[in-house]
Simulated scan of single mutants.
Amino acid sequence: MNHRLPSLQSLVAFEATVRLGSMTAAAEEERTTQPTISQRIRTLEERLGLPVFDRQGSRLTLTVQGERFFRDISPNLKEIRDACERLIHHGQRPSPSVTIAAGSGFTHLWLLPQLPALKRAFPDFTFKLMPIDRADDPERQAADIAIRFGPYMPQDAGRLVASEAVFPVCRPDYASEHGLADTLTASHLTQLSLLHQDIKDPRWLDWTQWCQHAGLSLVPSDDVFAYHNYALLLNAALAGQGVALGWSPLVKDYLASGQLIALGPRVTRKDYGYWLSVKHHRSAVIQPIGDWLIDAVHQQEIASRA
């Protein structure tokens, strides 16, 4: 006898016949015919090289080896049957859906790359990402998890995801071409293509505000092309078109890969950052997901300092 296993059909036919007391009953359970069950059991016996039933007389009686074999396989087949039932039952239930709203930059540059890992961590959930920049947008307020950028607001009850840290970023070759080292100076700014965003939002630093916090003077220029969103602006920096302002969580992957380099000075504002809040009536269900997101940002920060 070789070591190839008997077919699952033959094992099921044998187990059902013994459990139900007849081949006819086994055929009904398996939705087949009695001759088919009989043939599957004979195939099993041929594979095993010995009979499992004593066919002398009218009653179907197990042999000693058949009785032992039934005791051995019956619990395992029951486990397989129960596992299939659980999977079928689970597949018929709709997966709970979780909506995560955040600014377009954070959504595209941080949340979207983290989505596969988030799904692996919470396989029973489906996730919908909503890039929303307006803080007063009704869809943002209705989201299960909302991540906003701005100052600390006591009434918001948000948890800090990442403190604000803003610094210039550009391609390494762009820095070499323009003689940029670690820190920008006011004289550098007059020679560089500064990449701007067209959204006028007091929560976000533009070049003028960043220079004020960095202690640098900036001569206004009329020759400015403004990008509609932060992802487009960052793509321009990746294409070597100039220097952009980088927010730490949004540019970490590009810095780690060497596609962009960070320049000084580094600007921070007290109590500014990314804040996560959970919709109150689903907090018990959603809170672990919020915890996971915050931990993922923190782990990236630790890795970047290593």
Rank of each mutant, 00 (worst) to 15 (best):
175 A>N: 03
161 V>W: 13
181 A>C: 10
207 W>N: 01
134 R>H: 11
103 G>I: 02
133 D>Q: 02
99 T>G: 00
187 S>T: 12
144 D>P: 08
198 D>K: 13
130 M>T: 00
104 S>L: 04
152 Y>P: 02
160 L>G: 13
150 G>H: 11
103 G>P: 00
115 L>D: 05
205 L>H: 11
114 Q>S: 10
130 M>L: 11
216 L>P: 05
155 Q>F: 15
158 G>P: 13
218 L>G: 01
210 W>L: 09
186 A>V: 14
129 L>G: 02
166 V>S: 07
169 V>G: 00
203 R>A: 14
177 E>G: 02
141 Q>K: 11
212 Q>M: 13
138 P>F: 07
163 S>C: 15
143 A>M: 03
121 A>R: 12
190 T>G: 00
133 D>A: 09
124 D>G: 05
155 Q>M: 15
168 P>C: 13
144 D>S: 08
110 W>Q: 00
188 H>K: 03
96 P>L: 04
169 V>L: 02
122 F>T: 03
135 A>C: 04
131 P>Y: 08
171 R>H: 11
159 R>C: 15
146 A>H: 04
119 K>S: 08
123 P>H: 05
204 W>N: 08
215 G>S: 12
199 I>A: 04
172 P>R: 05
156 D>T: 13
101 A>S: 10
199 I>E: 13
116 P>V: 10
121 A>W: 10
208 T>A: 13
209 Q>F: 04
159 R>E: 15
208 T>D: 12
118 L>F: 08
118 L>Q: 02
106 F>A: 05
100 I>V: 03
